[in-house]
Structure formats: structure tokens, C-alpha cells
């Protein structure tokens, strides 16, 4: 773990898709330490805010020391971050938590709803670099809110929009049967057979994905999700980011996640309390 103590410097700010901001920062030790799916706690200086904000890195390049963050403006903290510009310093803590488990050789299906796509450019890059076959299912309200498929070189991209302005009209989860249909079906319980699934998006989307997967015979152990919960410290002390575990008790998003296999979560006790 390389917990950054020196601030990062903003190199670029851009608009990767409608309503979103991408900040590229320079911090070589953190870029080198990051595993795809891990997050940083970013300090914000907006009036009346206190806590750091957890953001998964979108990608990192250890050679150039650059890290990218993609987000939209949902409140004061993200609003403050959205107006950072080249040359500004950014106080970041991390990388923190567990990234995705990318080992293995199965084909991979990425399911990204809305801003859930923000964690995947680096994940897809790492999967492709491992020689894995990758299909990216991207969902958004409308075509302008889709991250361009060029951000996923080496992967096949399928899109879904609520308004039908690009790709399939409907939920990204509805693309699952098509994507899965290309591979031999999963064999029984456990992690044998079939592709592996990596998902991030609003909790209702994740729950729809799990329901669809159950019906398609995909074991929950083959699905990894990146969780988003309210978070305090990000390092396991405040116990604020609890998420229900099957059989009772709680995981912590910051230590046990944010990337977790779906069978480690009690989804019936995981309400839609979290914004997506």
C-alpha cells in the first residue's frame, strides 16, 4: 500500500461524456501502486464540507505517473472537484481498498450502468493485457452520456440507452443474455464454466443484474461488483461504510471492498440507500 502524503497535481480536465468530468492528476507513487478497482479518498475544500470523497480511479499509467478520475456533479464536494484545473493540487489518500480480482482466464463481461463506467477503463485495459476476451456492456440514459467505446481498446462494446438514442433501448442488464449466449453455459454452482462478470452501477441496476444472472444460471461467485456506499474515513476506523453480509454482520466497503464477489453480500439487506 502506498498511501499518498504529497498532493497530486492536476494535469488535465476534460468532459469525457455529457454531464461528467475527467480529471487527470500526476502522482507517480500512487499511480504505480494502484490496482484496478481501488479508490482514493480525495480532500475537498467546498464550504461546509468535512469528509473526504471516495472515488475509484478510472485508470492509472505507472509509466507516466498519471491517474484519471471520472465523475459527475452530485453535490458540493464533486462540484468543487469539477472546477479543478491544470496546476491545481489535489490532496489524495490511497490507493485504498480491494480492487477487482483479475486473475484467471475466463472471458469477461463488464456491466456498467451510468457513472458506474468510471471504474472500468483501467479494469478493461488490465483484462485485455492479460489476454482475456472482454465484452463491455454500457448503459446510460441517453447516447450523449455514454463513455465513448474508444476508451476500451481491445474490447467489444455493446450499448443500451433508456431513450434508444444509441444501441439497445432499455436497461443494460437486458444485454446480458446476448453477451452470455456467445459462451458455453456455466456449469453448476461455484466458479466453473461461463464468463466472469464485473459490474458497477446504481444499486437497483446491480440487483436487477443479480436477478437476471440467477435466471440465466450464472453463479453469484462469478460476479464481482464495485460498491458505492457513504464513507467516512476510508481506512476502516469509522465503521461507517457497512454492507450486510450473508448470515449476519457487516463488511466494510473501504476494507473488504469496494470490489467484492456478489455472493459475499446479503442483497436482501442492501437497500437502495446508496446513490448510483
Amino acid at each position: 500500500m502506498s498511501l499518498a502524503l504529497k498532493p497530486a497535481v492536476v494535469l488535465e480536465r476534460s468532459t469525457p461524456m455529457s454531464g461528467a468530468v475527467e480529471l487527470v492528476v500526476h502522482h507517480p507513487p500512487a499511480a504505480a501502486a494502484l490496482r484496478p478497482g481501488q479508490f482514493f479518498q480525495l480532500a475537498v475544500a467546498a464550504p461546509q464540507t468535512i469528509l473526504r470523497r471516495p472515488y475509484s480511479a478510472a485508470w492509472a499509467d505507472p509509466d507516466s505517473g498519471r491517474i484519471g478520475f471520472i465523475f459527475n456533479v452530485v453535490g458540493a464536494g464533486s462540484g468543487w472537484l469539477a472546477v479543478r484545473h491544470e496546476g491545481h493540487e489535489l490532496d489524495l489518500l490511497g490507493p485504498l481498498g480491494r480492487g477487482f480480482d483479475l486473475d484467471g482466464s475466463k472471458p469477461a463481461i463488464i456491466v456498467a450502468g451510468g457513472l458506474g463506467v468510471a471504474v472500468f477503463p483501467g479494469v478493461v485495459g488490465a483484462l485485455v493485457a492479460r489476454g482475456r476476451q472482454v465484452t463491455v456492456l454500457l448503459g446510460a440514459r441517453t447516447s450523449a452520456q455514454l463513455l465513448p467505446s474508444g476508451r476500451f481498446p481491445g474490447a467489444e462494446v455493446m450499448t443500451a440507452t433508456d431513450d434508444g438514442t444509441a444501441g439497445y433501448q432499455g436497461s443494460v442488464v437486458d444485454l446480458m443474455p446476448v453477451a452470455l449466449g456467445r459462451f458455453p453455459p456455466p456449469q453448476g454452482e461455484g466458479r466453473g464454466g461461463g464468463p466472469e462478470i464485473f459490474a458497477c452501477g446504481p444499486t437497483p441496476m446491480l440487483q436487477a443484474l443479480l436477478e437476471k444472472s440467477r435466471r440465466l444460471g450464472v453463479p453469484l461467485g462469478l460476479i464481482q461488483v464495485s460498491l458505492e456506499t457513504p464513507m467516512g474515513c476510508g481506512v476502516g476506523t469509522c465503521l461507517g461504510c457497512a454492507i450486510a453480509r450473508p448470515g449476519g454482520g457487516y463488511l466494510l466497503t473501504c476494507l473488504d471492498g469496494p470490489c467484492v464477489r456478489a455472493d459475499r453480500i446479503d442483497w436482501s439487506r442492501t437497500a437502495d440507500a446508496f446513490h448510483g
Binding site: 457513504p230 467516512g232 469509522c238 465503521l239 461504510c241 457497512a242 450486510a244 457487516y250 440507500a273
Partner: peptide, 23 residues
Amino acid sequence: REGNAPTRIAETPSGMLNAIGLQ
């Protein structure tokens, strides 16, 4: 003790609320 069900924390103006529940 397991502590309380989420949501356990919330930021408020210049402060935060917690209801961890002595986990």
C-alpha cells in the same frame, strides 16, 4: 456487537452524523 444497519453516517453542514451502534 454487530452495529447498526446501514446507512450509518451522513455529512451535514460543517459536521457529520454517525449511528454506528458500537460495533
